[in-house]
Design a protein around this nucleic acid. Structure first.
Length: 424
RNA sequence: GGAGAGGUGCCUGAGUGGCCGAAAGGGACAGUUUGCUAAACUGUUGUACUCGCAAGGGUACCGAGGGUUCGAAUCCCUCCCUCUCCGCCA
């Protein structure tokens, strides 16, 4: 959530940057926010004056009662009754204005960093880095969903039966590949200084709000109605919310946590082309890296995270590229996002396998996660996170790109984790 | 699921209508002392909003929301949460 003070003091800049994210009617929305804020503060001032006088009088009454001057006390009481009456309506006004202001503020996305490219669609994302050779597959090479069934790795039909579409069943070497990769990613994160967290997979609404899923993406999360809990769409939610309502020590920054969790996404409305096999699932596995950072260091740390993900993809021997997302393709809460895509040779397309972002203080303002600075004041931290990595599309490209007529070769780095070097 | 207890500041914990934004202890931080460490002593130590150039004010917050009252951490109502015991169970 954007800070009202920032909007007040940087109105023109806020308008300009929100326009980059293609917010409709920005000028009008911001102007109405400014006006609501002014009205709110004016009303609040009036209310506080009333309350201050009331407090003052109440004290006097106390004194008078103690010294036995009942009549005098009674006469003052009349004034307090008056004050109370007028406070009531002003208080209501303040509350209404506050609610209105809040409800507009939560709908505004984060401001994009200045290096975010202009653009509306994924085609306008900026390709900032590409590495690895795009493999030439032999005649008769298969897409991963056919490989998965040929080698009995993943059973999509069984998943349909016991749950529904988008819930695959991993079997045998397919299952071991999942488990091995999870361990591999966690170990790599640990080597990079992240602390492993094993969080709950269900979160409450406050947590959903803290990281920005609520109210923006309510429909994308599975909701357990009886208990009013949400299945996490990413480990980012519980791991970042660890620091909700926390004032961290400045010298503890950056705080680096990682965690493996299954992720649950309803993906409502995203059926159609390109959702076959592992390309889009309702449940998938992911290792996430999360940082709580000093505002002055957050972009440095974003680069560090990007490098970490690069290293993973290189160890997996997959061709990949990095995109700096344009204003129109970025997520609601992000200030700067790098997407990683691996090239799937059998599908002849790029698949997103990681999204690494700096949220600056957009999440921390909701989370109320702060640190006490050397100036003695509290400041919002910056939060960052990235997939390192999401499994399904990695598995898809891995199966497709590393297939040979004799079977699928497992990258060297993974062999110790999965316990075999070939799927055949 | 049944029964009971309780939610107060960084923590423990007192307060039960005005002197309470809140005792005391612990912790943390700073200073004194000190060869170093420890100990001791002294001091500081909540958050948010808001007014003000500033100095400095004001308001709110003792789980949440309502109510009673001139005045509520304290009394009343509703809700939420946590803990203990029993039952069930991985």
């Amino acid at each position: 959530m954007l800070q009202i003070n920032y909007i007040r003091e940087n109105t023109a800049d806020v308008k300009k940057r929100l326009a980059k994210k293609h917010v409709k009617d920005v000028d009008q929305i911001i102007d109405s926010i400014i006006s609501l804020d002014e009205q709110k503060r004016a009303a609040q001032l009036q209310l506080e004056k009333n309350l201050a006088e009331g407090n003052q009088l109440a004290k006097q009454i106390g004194e008078l009662m103690k010294t036995g001057k009942k009549e005098e006390a009674e006469s003052i009481k009349a004034r307090t009754v008056e004050l109370k009456e007028s406070s009531k309506s002003v208080e209501e006004k303040v509350k209404n204005l506050e609610d209105e202001l809040f409800s507009v503020l939560v709908t505004l996305p984060n401001l994009p960093n200045e290096i975010v490219p202009e653009g509306k669609t994924p085609e306008e994302n900026l390709n900032v880095f590409q590495q690895g050779e795009i493999p030439k597959l032999y005649e008769g090479a298969l897409p991963h969903w056919e490989l998965a069934s040929k080698y009995n790795l993943i059973d999509f039909e069984l998943g349909n039966k016991i749950t529904g579409a988008g819930f695959p069943v991993y079997k045998g070497k397919g299952a071991r590949l999942q488990r091995g990769m999870i361990n591999f990613f966690l170990d790599e994160a640990m080597k990079a200084g992240y602390t492993e967290i094993m969080p709950p997979l269900l979160v409450n609404a406050d947590s959903g709000f803290g990281t920005g899923q609520l109210p923006d993406k309510e429909g994308q999360m599975y909701h357990v109605g009886v208990d009013d809990l949400y299945l996490i769409p990413t480990a980012e939610v519980p791991i970042t919310n660890l620091y909700r309502d926390v004032i961290v020590k400045e010298e503890d920054l950056p705080i680096k946590n990682t965690g493996y969790t299954p992720c649950f996404r309803r993906e409502a409305g995203s059926y159609g082309a390109h959702v076959r096999g592992l390309n889009r699932l309702h449940q998938f596995d992911k290792v996430e890296i999360v940082q709580i950072a000093h505002p002055e260091k957050s972009y440095e740390l974003l680069d560090e995270m990007v490098n970490h993900v690069k290293g993973l993809l290189e160890k997996l021997e997959l061709p990949y590229r990095i995109l700096r997302l344009c204003g129109g393709d970025m997520s609601f809460a992000s200030a700067l996002t790098y997407d990683f895509e691996t090239y799937s040779a059998a599908q002849e397309r790029w698949l997103e396998v990681s999204s690494t972002s700096n949220f600056e203080n957009f999440q921390s303002n909701r989370l109320k996660c702060r640190f006490k600075g050397k100036d003695g004041k509290n400041h919002l931290v910056h939060t960052l996170n990235g997939s390192a990595l999401a499994l399904p599309r990695i598995v898809a490209t891995l199966l497709e790109n590393h297939q040979t007529p004799e079977g699928i070769k497992i990258p060297k780095a993974l062999v110790p984790y999965v316990g075999f070097d070939m799927i055949n």
